[in-house]
Nucleic acid binder design. Structure first.
Lengths: 222, 222
DNA sequence: ACAAATATTTAGGTGATCCTAAATATTTTA
DNA sequence: TAAAATATTTAGGATCACCTAAATATTTGT
């Protein structure tokens, strides 16, 4: 048995937050896919969220959804929880960066504001989680990142890895094995315009990095 | 809005576990009161739990409920989570014993078995939580306590406080202020058979302790 | 041992979140 | 620009965990 778990409002808001990162409203199908439910169910919930007392989302038929200021705050609150928990699992319980996402996904809904404050303080109010993702501040504003995707670098350029946009544990273990983790200094030794592959010098060794990966790694030029 | 939260199967099992501690089956009304729902709702859920594939409870109309072996394991699993979390909140995040219950109540449902193992190991596999309640072992057996309620002591007897059966934060703070916490050595300096009050010497000071409290404090004779 | 009080169960209903299938709107392609 | 493909919404339904009110069973008090 063990009841099929229902998706929380916070999960909807977080998904919308992520899908609207580029500025465009999120569309029903993308949301449905991400949440693992039918598009029709998304429509229903979104209509509800757009009609409650202080609306959490802004919605117009066939035009997709965006978060209201209210909804944005609520999303950032969960994201702050999530990222603080990830940092804390790594630093105090010896988790590796590929293990923390699933655990944090559950815990983010269960912790109190007091708990949040205690781990934030115990960790020295960190600004990034183990993947380098910025942690929203206590007053719920998201720090702006001015990082470049690795894919934007060209031959000869050097940089420091700052952020890895990935949750998939297998991929994360792979990146870890390459040394492609926040803090690592890298240099582009070759670039193939034909297939967009980069040859990257990491810890004195060359690796060929494809487009799929190089758009997920964010760096700061050296 | 923020959806009215529904009671989990684990919460039912935990409540039944606690209400059947004395050996008698738990009755519908007591369960309903403890869970904060209507008796009719309890009847419905219990009937369901008694009919699922491996039944979690044993139920006969008008005769109350008991846990099956399966149900017992499931209850001990949550209780282990709860008590480990309490111990860990106190030892690593500076919570006081009156603050941990509510937080643990949420977290106990959100942690993985891996998380459980990590905190158990980080704490050195503790046998008791901050209130002195025994923590079920990894293989889910509850260690037997052979403690006496403080109420059973008489004039002249000395003992060490081992366990405090209370969740109420206000009461816990009160007990803390008296020094009535696990580890404290006490001595009965007087007993009034009329009202069952005990006069107890705690840290060189006498306190009068009523029946309501003295049945919640468990001790080991000195 | 019976009536009264109490406890429990049954019956029927509500709201929440999901579903599928059909209807409609939008976007793409030729 | 019209047909085809795709995306979205509407309509109607299922399930789940709760509810209240009424029916029934058990326990208590005299």
């Amino acid at each position: 048995m063990e009841t099929t778990l229902t998706i929380s409002v916070q999960d909807y808001l977080k998904a919308i937050y992520e899908l609207t990162a580029g500025g465009e409203p999120a569309n029903t199908t993308a949301l449905a896919t991400r949440l693992g439910i039918a598009p029709a169910s998304v429509t229903g919930m979104i209509q509800k969220l757009s009609r409650i007392k202080p609306p959490l989302v802004e919605y117009r038929k066939h035009q997709g959804v965006k978060l209201t200021a209210q909804g944005n705050k609520a999303a950032l609150e969960v994201i702050r929880h999530h990222r603080l928990i990830e940092a804390w699992l790594v630093q105090t319980l010896g988790y590796s960066w590929d293990e923390v996402h699933a655990e944090a996904e559950q815990l983010e809904h269960a912790i109190s504001e007091d708990f949040e404050a205690r781990i934030a303080s115990a960790l020295g109010n960190p600004e990034r989680d183990p993947h380098g993702e910025p942690i929203p501040s206590v007053n719920l504003t998201m720090p702006e990142d001015t990082l470049l995707p690795l894919a934007a670098l060209r031959k000869g350029q050097a940089a420091i890895v700052k952020r890895v946009n990935a949750e998939n544990p297998e991929l994360l273990r792979h990146l870890d094995s390459l040394g492609l983790v926040p803090g690592t200094k890298i240099e582009i030794t070759d670039y193939s315009p034909y297939d967009n592959n980069l040859t990257v010098l990491i810890d004195d060794q060359d690796f060929v990095i494809g487009l799929a990966i190089s758009t997920k790694i964010f760096v700061e030029k050296f």
